[in-house]
Amino acid sequence: MFNSISSQASKLINLTKPKNNISKTKVITITSGKGGVGKSTFTANIAYLLAKRGFKVVVIDADIGLANLQVLFDLKPKLTLFDYIEGRNSISEVVSNTAYSNLSLIAGKSGYQYANLNNSLVLSRIVHDIKDYNNYDIVLIDTGAGLNEYVQEFLSVSDNILALTTTDPSALTDVYALMKLLSIDKKSLLLCFNHTRSYQIGETISKSLVNLAKKNLLNPNFMVKYIGNVSTSANISTTSRLRKLFVHEFQHDQITKELQKVIDTLLNDLK
Rank of each mutant, 00 (worst) to 15 (best):
M1L: 10
F2V: 05
N3R: 14
S4D: 13
S7V: 04
S7Q: 13
S10W: 00
T16C: 03
K24W: 00
T25A: 09
A51H: 04
K56P: 01
V58M: 02
V58S: 02
L66Q: 04
A67G: 03
L69Q: 08
L72G: 07
D74N: 15
L75T: 09
L81F: 08
I91Y: 01
V95M: 06
Y100T: 10
L103R: 03
I106R: 00
K109P: 00
G111R: 07
N119R: 11
I126G: 04
D132S: 14
Y133E: 01
Y136Q: 03
V139E: 04
V139K: 04
I141Y: 08
T143A: 07
G144R: 02
A145G: 13
A145H: 02
F154K: 02
L162G: 08
T166H: 06
T173K: 11
L178I: 14
M179K: 06
M179D: 04
K180C: 06
S183C: 11
K186G: 10
K187E: 15
L191N: 11
H195E: 13
T196C: 15
I201V: 15
G202K: 04
K207G: 08
K214A: 13
Y226R: 04
R243M: 09
V247E: 06
V247F: 03
F250Y: 15
D253G: 05
K257Y: 10
K261C: 02
L270E: 11
K271H: 13
